[in-house]
Simulated scan of single mutants.
Amino acid sequence: MNQTTIVYTSALCPVCGMVKSFLDTLEIPYQEVNVDMNPVAMLQLITKTRRLSVPQTKINGKLISGFNPEKMMQALNGSLL
């Protein structure tokens, strides 16, 4: 399984914790990018998503907004085929 998962987060975001817990439960490795501490990443994320909100989860190139387990599983399962 060769997949890339990035979770864009903010320190004050409770939903970000839900996404990370979900991925941890599934034992899916991910890279966390805290946009509070990384203004360049924040601007890149806003450019890609046209949103000011986190969490944004990128699984194999697909961006998923908020905590959406169904879409996350679809993106993860697509990488297993």
Score class of each variant (00 low, 15 high):
I6H: 01
T49W: 01
T5P: 02
V54A: 06
A41G: 13
N38Y: 10
V7C: 09
Y30N: 13
V33C: 03
N60A: 03
V15Q: 10
D24F: 07
L43Q: 11
L26F: 03
V54F: 12
L52V: 10
K48P: 02
I64C: 02
I28Y: 07
Q56V: 15
M73E: 09
D36H: 06
P69T: 12
T49K: 13
V7W: 05
S65W: 06
G78Y: 05
D36Y: 14
P14L: 08
S53R: 10
N34K: 15
C13K: 06
A11G: 08
L23W: 07
Q44V: 04
I28M: 13
N38D: 14
Q31P: 00
V40S: 13
E32Q: 06
E32P: 00
P29E: 11
Q3R: 07
V35N: 05
V15E: 06
C16V: 04
Y30L: 07
D24R: 11
T4A: 12
N2F: 11
A11N: 13
L52C: 00
D24G: 10
M72W: 00
I59H: 00
N34T: 07
I46R: 07
K71E: 15
Q3E: 10
G61T: 01
Y8C: 03
G78D: 08
S21Y: 04
M18T: 05
N38G: 14
A41C: 14
I59E: 00
A11T: 14
V33E: 09
F67V: 12
S65V: 10
V40E: 10
T25A: 13
T25V: 09
G61S: 01
N68Q: 11
V19C: 14
V7Q: 05
I64G: 00
T25N: 13
L12H: 09
L45F: 11
P39V: 15
C13Q: 08
N34C: 12
N2D: 09
E27L: 13
S21M: 08
A75I: 01
N2A: 07
L63A: 00
K71F: 01
L76Y: 06
N2S: 13
P14H: 07
Q3L: 10
G78I: 02
K71D: 10
L52R: 07
S53L: 09
N60P: 01
V54H: 08
L26W: 08
F22A: 03
L52M: 09
T5M: 01
F67H: 03
M37G: 09
L52T: 14
T5A: 04
A11L: 05
E27R: 15
S53A: 10
Q56D: 03
E32R: 03
Q56W: 04
L76K: 04
C16P: 04
A41N: 10
D24V: 10
Q44M: 06
Q44E: 15
K71G: 03
V15M: 11
E32I: 11
F67N: 07
G66D: 12
R50H: 11
K58N: 05
